[in-house]
Amino acid sequence: MTPDPTPAVEFRAVSRHFGAVRAVDSVDLTIAEGAFFAMLGPSGSGKTTCLRLISGFEKPSAGHILIHGQDVSDVPPNRRNVNTVFQDYALFPHMTVRENVAYGLMVKGVDRRRRRDKAEELLALVKLQGYGDRRPGQLSGGQRQRVALARALINEPRALLLDEPLGALDLKLREAMQDELKALQKRLGITFVFVTHDQHEALSMADSLAVFNEGKIAQIGTPEDVYTRPKSRFVADFVGSSNVLPPKLTRALGGPAAWASLRPESVRLAAVGPVRGTVSAVRYLGAGSRVVLRIGEVEVAAYVPAGDPIPDIGSEASPVFAPAALHVMEG
């Protein structure tokens, strides 16, 4: 299959202001067809507003939104061929599971038989065969989530929008659903746009992601890009467990006088080095240990593989690393 050159979703200088608050501030964004795209950011960073701009529940104050190349800025939600899995599912409480799933077909005027068949097909897809006659109130959280998923997929949308879909589930269920969503997306080939504040979720599921901060996109790229080469302190802080080094320390460690990030896995401890620090914490992780060195005001984490000697808390050590591991940031 050759990749479709037209992006699934495109933002052109899109802003959404609520009074003086710039929830989304002149955002440019391209989401490739068939991508599993994550919007990651703390609450209030604008990621959910962006999702609602795609579905049409918010209107841009400025700029244009395109779905598959077509400007939808002036198209109401019911005519946009994208569907949403809502954060708390928003299932219709007065309908059965089957009626919920078939709702999108009913409002299109599809006849009852075809609605039923298609709803059963979708219920099978989300592994809920036999649940069609129940009410949403009789289902567990995980099951409700699957119903919401089936309901949003029945119209075969150009893109599926998921608003913190796993937030309400417990940890074990969440991990199982992560794998399942990923597999489903591969199988259907539909573009998934996924909003989350959980960096692990974003990194493990998405094939590209945007990190939001204060209404702007702080960085956009593959998970590896964002994780290993954060563009700014905010991204390094929010996405990773990377060490963030202030310019002075970067220079002392042999780099330029700029903010830099340094992954703990790349740092080893040595008796001699350009900078010395005091071991302030040690955490055993199984395959190795994470050792925190305090250098003045800054803490630098290092990784000590299993088998290597673990320094005592309070002892002194120097961080050493390959020069290529130091990633200089823009700000």
């Binding site: 579905s55 049409g56 529940f57 109401p76 939600p77 019911n78 005519r79 569907n83 949403t84 809502f86 954060q87 708390d88 599912y89 928003a90 299932l91 219709f92 409480p93 709702y103 999108g104 409002v107 299109k108 309901r151 949003a152 119209n155």
Partner: peptide, 12 residues
């Protein structure tokens, strides 16, 4: 959310 869900699924 249910009103938005309805619009989202294509209902006028």
């Amino acid at each position: 959310g249910v009103l938005e869900a309805s619009a989202d699924l294509g209902a006028n």
